[in-house]
Design a protein around this nucleic acid. Structure first.
Length: 265
DNA sequence: ATGCCTGCGGTTCGCAGA
């Protein structure tokens, strides 16, 4: 089973690009982030024509996530469970998580996430990022107790180590490289999740995002912020990982590129 | 030091992204 994660930066603005990539790469599952539309405005038909079942958790203008799957999907969850330490719902109306079980002889649970950006640091948005991370951490802990194969994949909006940026000094003071964001990411991994990029031996410089501005792509000023974190049962089935760098050169590209992990069927 | 791009909503600019 081949599972892709891709922050598409608006599924409607990006539709021809996303469809062209899906046709060529033909993943079994595609987790999309930043669809930037409500469920009713998600262009279901062209994806269904390519053979995908479609489940969305949309929102007007911002955020929004979706799972496309050639196999049936079950046990669908929209939004992370839980509240923050103050007892308040931390979703705040933001659609950033959808999860489903991909049915097969050896099922895989897929969590598709769009972690908050968190800038500027030390404002409400950064606190929201850390609170969201905490809820993800608790949910991952609960999922691990099920002892299932799963991937928590998506745009984590974290640069975990200096080698995950072409120019780490440029990111000092940014929410993506803040020590608290990095610590939260590492704590999540230390629950017992495996980074597919690491399992696959991806070299430094395997970036997944290049800003539209300042010639970042031309100068390869990238960062690695999109990940598949695999449960032990999924890591046991790991075959390969591919970061589709070429997608950054497509017409009207997203600023992120897809990352595809293959697990044994 | 600042803005660079891009998308969205809704109107020609502000917000958000990373």
């Amino acid at each position: 089973m081949r599972i892709a994660t891709w922050n598409v930066n608006s599924v409607n603005a990006r539709l021809p690009t996303v469809l062209a990539w899906l046709e060529a790469a033909a993943p079994d599952v595609a987790c999309l982030q930043e669809i930037k539309c409500v469920d009713e405005k998600f262009p279901r038909e062209p994806f269904e024509s390519l053979g995908y079942n479609v489940e969305t958790h949309g929102q007007k203008s911002y955020n929004g996530v979706a799972i496309l799957s050639r196999r049936p999907l079950s046990d669908i969850r929209r939004g992370l469970p839980g509240v923050d330490d103050s007892g308040h719902e931390t979703d705040a109306g933001q659609a950033r998580y959808i999860e489903a079980v991909v049915e097969s002889a050896r099922p895989v649970r897929v969590g598709c996430l769009y972690l908050p950006n968190g800038n500027p640091v030390d404002a409400d948005k950064f606190a929201y990022k850390l609170a969201w991370f905490d809820r993800l951490h608790r949910h991952a802990r609960d999922l691990l107790a099920l002892e299932e194969a799963f991937s928590l994949c998506g745009d984590y909006n974290v640069i975990p180590t200096p080698t995950d940026a072409k120019n780490p000094a440029a990111w000092v003071g940014d929410a993506l490289f803040d020590p608290r964001s990095r610590a939260a990411f590492h704590a999540l991994r230390h629950l017992g999740l495996s980074d597919a990029g690491e399992l696959g031996g991806q070299p430094p410089g395997t970036y997944t995002f290049w800003d539209y501005q300042a010639g970042a792509w031309r100068r390869d000023h990238g960062i690695r912020i999109d990940f598949h974190l695999l449960s032990p049962q999924a890591a046991d089935r790991f075959r390969s990982v591919e970061t589709h760098r070429d997608a950054r050169d497509m017409d009207r590209p997203s600023d992120h590129v897809p990352v595809v992990v293959e697990l044994e069927d």
